Simulated scan of single mutants.
Amino acid sequence: MRASLPAGDRCGGGALSGYPIDRIYEEVAFIAYYMHWAHDDIMAMDHRERRRWCDEISRIHRKVSKEPKNIFAT
């Protein structure tokens, strides 16, 4: 990935003009860390879809962190 993207560059169908590159790195790292998905798969998502996954992962993490036991155990 380039260090900066010129205005109007597109990635995964979403325009990146005006969207901070540091924020993109943060979203990609967050999703990759928790979901173990490949960089190219995450970058193929548009901004809205990446944000949605970040929100869902955060919601699950908050819920699990408050539970005294593993809620996914059978």
Results as ranks from 00 to 15, higher is better:
residue 53 W to E: 02
residue 48 R to F: 13
residue 45 M to H: 00
residue 46 D to Y: 09
residue 48 R to K: 14
residue 43 M to W: 01
residue 55 D to I: 01
residue 54 C to M: 15
residue 28 V to G: 02
residue 39 H to Y: 13
residue 48 R to P: 01
residue 57 I to R: 00
residue 46 D to P: 07
residue 44 A to V: 02
residue 30 F to S: 09
residue 28 V to A: 12
residue 29 A to H: 03
residue 33 Y to T: 14
residue 37 W to F: 04
residue 56 E to Q: 11
residue 40 D to P: 01
residue 43 M to R: 06
residue 48 R to N: 13
residue 31 I to A: 03
residue 43 M to C: 13
residue 30 F to C: 07
residue 57 I to V: 13
residue 26 E to W: 14
residue 41 D to F: 06
residue 40 D to K: 08
residue 44 A to E: 03
residue 57 I to N: 00
residue 53 W to A: 02
residue 37 W to E: 02
residue 39 H to V: 04
residue 48 R to I: 11
residue 51 R to T: 10
residue 50 R to I: 05
residue 50 R to M: 10
residue 30 F to M: 11
residue 31 I to W: 02
residue 31 I to D: 00
residue 34 Y to A: 09
residue 32 A to W: 02
residue 29 A to M: 08
residue 28 V to T: 13
residue 29 A to T: 07
residue 55 D to F: 05
residue 36 H to G: 07
residue 45 M to R: 03
residue 46 D to L: 09
residue 57 I to S: 03
residue 52 R to A: 10
residue 42 I to E: 00
residue 30 F to Q: 08
residue 44 A to Q: 05
residue 30 F to E: 09
residue 52 R to E: 15
residue 33 Y to I: 05
residue 41 D to G: 12
residue 56 E to C: 05
residue 56 E to H: 05
residue 51 R to M: 08
residue 33 Y to D: 10
residue 26 E to F: 09
residue 50 R to K: 08
residue 35 M to R: 08
residue 38 A to T: 00
residue 40 D to N: 08
residue 55 D to Y: 13
residue 50 R to A: 04
residue 52 R to W: 14
residue 32 A to P: 00
residue 26 E to V: 07
residue 51 R to V: 15
residue 36 H to S: 11
residue 26 E to G: 14
residue 26 E to N: 10
residue 56 E to N: 12
residue 53 W to D: 00
residue 57 I to L: 07
residue 47 H to T: 12
residue 55 D to S: 11
residue 35 M to P: 00
residue 50 R to S: 06
residue 34 Y to T: 01
residue 39 H to Q: 10
residue 53 W to H: 09
residue 55 D to P: 03
residue 29 A to G: 10
residue 31 I to E: 02
residue 35 M to C: 06
residue 49 E to K: 15
residue 56 E to A: 12
residue 51 R to W: 15
residue 50 R to C: 05
residue 31 I to L: 06
residue 51 R to Y: 11
residue 57 I to F: 00
residue 52 R to D: 08
residue 47 H to F: 03
residue 41 D to N: 12
residue 42 I to R: 00
residue 45 M to S: 04
residue 36 H to D: 08
residue 48 R to C: 09
residue 42 I to G: 01
residue 27 E to D: 10
residue 44 A to D: 06
residue 40 D to Q: 07
residue 58 S to F: 11
residue 27 E to N: 10
residue 27 E to Y: 08
residue 53 W to S: 01
residue 47 H to Y: 08
residue 43 M to T: 03
residue 42 I to Q: 01
residue 45 M to C: 07
residue 57 I to E: 01
residue 38 A to P: 02
residue 26 E to D: 14
residue 34 Y to N: 06
residue 48 R to E: 05
residue 47 H to V: 11
residue 40 D to Y: 05
residue 55 D to H: 13
residue 40 D to M: 11
residue 29 A to C: 11
residue 38 A to W: 02
residue 35 M to L: 10
residue 50 R to T: 09
residue 40 D to S: 14
residue 47 H to R: 10
residue 47 H to C: 07
residue 58 S to M: 14
residue 58 S to A: 08
residue 43 M to S: 10
residue 51 R to K: 15
residue 32 A to C: 09
residue 37 W to D: 00
residue 45 M to G: 06
residue 29 A to E: 11
residue 49 E to V: 07
residue 46 D to H: 12
residue 27 E to M: 10
residue 34 Y to D: 04
residue 41 D to C: 07
residue 53 W to Q: 02
residue 50 R to H: 04
residue 46 D to F: 12
residue 52 R to Y: 11
residue 31 I to N: 04
residue 29 A to L: 13
residue 38 A to G: 08
residue 45 M to F: 08
residue 34 Y to Q: 05
residue 32 A to L: 00
